[in-house]
Design a protein around this nucleic acid. Sequence first.
DNA 1: ATCGATCGCTACGGTACCGTAGCGATTCGC
DNA 2: GCGAATCGCTACGGTACCGTAGCGATCGAT
Lengths: 198, 198
Amino acid sequence: MVTPAVSRAERVREQVLDATVELVAAVGVERLSIDEVANRSGVAKSTIYRHFPSKQVLVVEAVHACTSIPLVTDSGSLREDLISCFSGMTKASYEGRLGDMMMSLMDAAQRDPELNRLVRAQTDQKRRFATEVLERAIARGEVSADLDVDLTVTLLSGPLVYTKLVRRMPLTNELIAAVVDSVLAGIDVGIAGGLRTK
Amino acid sequence: MVTPAVSRAERVREQVLDATVELVAAVGVERLSIDEVANRSGVAKSTIYRHFPSKQVLVVEAVHACTSIPLVTDSGSLREDLISCFSGMTKASYEGRLGDMMMSLMDAAQRDPELNRLVRAQTDQKRRFATEVLERAIARGEVSADLDVDLTVTLLSGPLVYTKLVRRMPLTNELIAAVVDSVLAGIDVGIAGGLRTK
DNA sequence: ATCGATCGCTACGGTACCGTAGCGATTCGC
DNA sequence: GCGAATCGCTACGGTACCGTAGCGATCGAT
């Protein structure tokens, strides 16, 4: 038999992580059981333990496996960049497989230091992307340097996360645009009026 | 012995609910066990089952037991009312004992219809309070009737919930005021400029 | 004071999951 | 191809929790 494209070890690893993602999305982190992962993945429980020493590690790697880093655009327009940025980020993190895990992940992160670091790192990264977009706008004079960037990121992220996680409503492009436009409108008159030059 | 102020049944009920709140805050809804509630409350497991037929019911009643309805002020100033409204609501729901349960509660609500109704009802009620405040401002002409009230409530609630649940940072009065002021600034110029008459 | 209701306590069988071990079968590196 | 590593499978003892039952003690209403 020829050597397959992916080794057996890799194939096993993928199957296990895939089943883990499905299970966490379905029953949550707390009720995730290795037995069930073994059943769904078709991988023996003993083999799972050979690859992942603990449930904690398994979940962390499963999250990593379905985490994608969205592109940060630089169109020259703050509005366009923010919409693009938040559209990419929210759809990557709060929809699809990762989105289905997110709530349970955040809950478990309150008690698990490892998961806490993971979730916090992802949150911080998303905030950094948005911060970059805002600081570029400041650099080119589109927005006043007096802008409270951190608050603005919260004003932008909050409503979207709240809509998805708490209200469990879809994150439409219309909503993202409406949030961005509303916050930009606030920036326009925010500090002393006419701070946004464009 | 004289008849106590509260009957034994009431005292038992309180002890059980109290221990349940503590435990849910500590280990989450999923890992809540009746055995542990019995240990912490000093109430026998069999007695707990006499009062609460299932863990589901127990959690729901425990949440009800530490839920308070904040007052909705009517100062005549939209800004003051919003700050007062969100200050009361967020501190009632996202801080203290209920706040410690909230994340786990929302996670469990994704899989438990009963908890889902409970969480959704609380969210809807908070939104209704904020909606009332905004509609009163519209009625007295402080804000244009064209205002998208639902979006505005999301713009106000989102950043606060996000700050508390996702970032796990304290909800200071400064933050609440900053969010309210930012959103109000956006409303001012939001639709056609100068919609806020005051 | 009495008597029924309630409670604390203990124990039970049943279930689910843990993490490990042994042993053929399969696969991979050489 | 051949040896070694890996895997699937089964089984194991141990733990935690479930929901129920029995029984003596306590409480509460009359």
